[in-house]
Design a protein around this nucleic acid. Sequence first.
DNA 1: TTAGTATATGAACAGATATTCATATATGGA
DNA 2: TCCATATATGAATATCTGTTCATATACTAA
Lengths: 117, 117
Amino acid sequence: MKEQCLCKLISPEEIDKIQKDLPDAETISDMAEFFKVFGDSSRLTLIYYLSRAELCVADLAALAGMSPSAVSHQLKTLRLMRLVKNRKEGTVVYYSLDDSHIDSLFKDALEHILEEK
Amino acid sequence: MKEQCLCKLISPEEIDKIQKDLPDAETISDMAEFFKVFGDSSRLTLIYYLSRAELCVADLAALAGMSPSAVSHQLKTLRLMRLVKNRKEGTVVYYSLDDSHIDSLFKDALEHILEEK
DNA sequence: TTAGTATATGAACAGATATTCATATATGGA
DNA sequence: TCCATATATGAATATCTGTTCATATACTAA
């Protein structure tokens, strides 16, 4: 434990316990990287489409109104984060979702937004 | 619907339905802004501590190893996103969580990370 | 009032990031 | 083989973002 609770609302023992439960720096960083992927409209749109259908890069680009190059770059990000998988058929690469948490995350985000007054 | 599905894996009717279900641009943007808040290690750490206790700015700074100014800036972000609320007592301002989705979001992120091979 | 403390805020800067553009790779058809 | 198409990728750039620093505000106590 680094410091006393200056404001003394809670005891040093409680502070100590809370600090011990803090995930380690690497876990926190991994979680942040995970959320960061969802923190961009373009990627969110791609993720939405892939949550509904398996699609090739060109179709994703057309649907999302992005260039194929931009889509490919973002799909690489999603791949590295293990959120999507792909399948090659000739020159076409089909992408689909590879994560079971998307629905839950989208639901939480939508609920929060709808709570806006 | 802007374009045909070039790869013709799914029908134009399906494409049409998927496009109609896409949340509007403002909703997508709001969702991205929401996730973006969690996409930073410092903010995630602050959110974690506030999920465990009501804390003042100085204590948050000490616990998270940040300057009070940086904490204050980040708390403003969290306030604007309606994720935290505060309470003033003299010169001290106590912050606490004001969102019911944090636990669920953290759980999803942690699960995903632990699925890493 | 004056001094001291806690917090907030604006400007500036450094680092990160999404897109574009040019190019490379891979596959299939002529 | 040569050409066309689909996708991937590296570099460059413009924008965004988190922190620091200086300063302002708000409250308390003397």
